[in-house]
Simulated scan of single mutants.
Amino acid sequence: MNRSLKQLMKSLLAPAFPGGIITILIFYLDYFQFELVEKFLLFAAFVIVPLVILLMNHDEKNKHQRMVYAAMKWLQFPAALLTLASVMSSKMWGLESTTIPGILSLGWLLFTLLLGIYGLTTIMISKGKAAELAIGAGLVYFFIGGIWFTLYQYQVNLFQANPATHALSSLHFHFSSAIVPIFIGALGRIMTKKSWYPWVVAIDIIGPILIAIGMIFSKPIEYMGVTLFACNIVIYTAYLLAYLRKNALDNKATFFLGLSCLAFYTVAVLSILYPLLKKIFFLTILDFIPVYGSLHAFGFVLCGLIGWVYTVDFIKRKKMVKENR
């Protein structure tokens, strides 16, 4: 028992374990009477962001980046706890009509600002490298997600959009908008140069903005953004699967990255079959939302992040072995 505990603490993913335990309790205990969108936002705060920070651990950092990175690493968990307190105050403590939930949400807003600063620094020192631009943009999108979360907790009506739309916008920027550019940037770091790659990065940066604008102002713009974004993920997953087949990586990395791609294609197939399944099983879109959300959050995003953390660590260890020969 003692040995297994020590092995657990030495695990590469150890920083995400405390948040993972809290997230499991949030999802499965009746005590936490939260909306599904709030549960997924807390999952992002407690699990997804620590894994993103782990993924950035092997970056070449200048002095300013090192300072911001240290602050990100130490402040993530306290900021996530403030996020939980913010949601609890509005849903469980009877403070929804006060400014307390909004004030508590500022902790997460300031933390995502740190992520955004790290992302901007990455872009500034990238020297135009498409992969670094993608990763930097993804980190900046976390900050936009933090802004939407604070607007949601303050229950502000903005641009004719209600707080429920703010919650969905925050979720969009914490998951797809932030994570897909980071994934594509991580792939760009290890793949051979391709002429189409900068275009994928450009679409990946513009797509989330189109989706966000469309959610508030125009459905056609939203559909266009979603289509472009989905096509980008298809390109990313197809190339990644081909790369995994041709290159020997860590077994854990290959397993989790493969699961991530499988989860995306499962979502795509379910979306195509939705009209048929709806008629056969008398289901509504509300029945499918938890399935789509779980496959995307726990399958595509979580497994993908774990896979990339293992991949980057494997490449680093391989490089060190070569240098020591």
Rank of each mutant, 00 (worst) to 15 (best):
L151V: 15
R189M: 12
Y118G: 01
F217G: 03
Y236W: 05
P290I: 03
D204H: 05
A242P: 00
S126R: 00
G207C: 10
F314E: 08
E60D: 14
F288W: 09
I147A: 11
L110Q: 01
I285L: 13
V312L: 09
A212D: 06
L95P: 13
F298E: 02
L115M: 10
V226F: 14
F175R: 04
L25K: 09
L81K: 00
L54I: 02
L29Q: 15
H296N: 08
Q155T: 02
A70S: 13
M124W: 08
L42R: 10
L5M: 11
P275R: 11
G299V: 10
A130N: 09
T83H: 02
L283T: 05
I125L: 11
T99A: 13
V37G: 03
L84Y: 08
Q7W: 14
D313W: 11
S105Q: 08
D313F: 12
K322C: 01
L114H: 05
I203T: 14
A164G: 05
G138M: 12
W308I: 12
R3T: 11
L109D: 09
L13T: 10
G116M: 00
W196N: 06
G188D: 05
T284D: 11
D204I: 08
R3G: 00
S294W: 01
P220A: 09
P220H: 07
G116N: 09
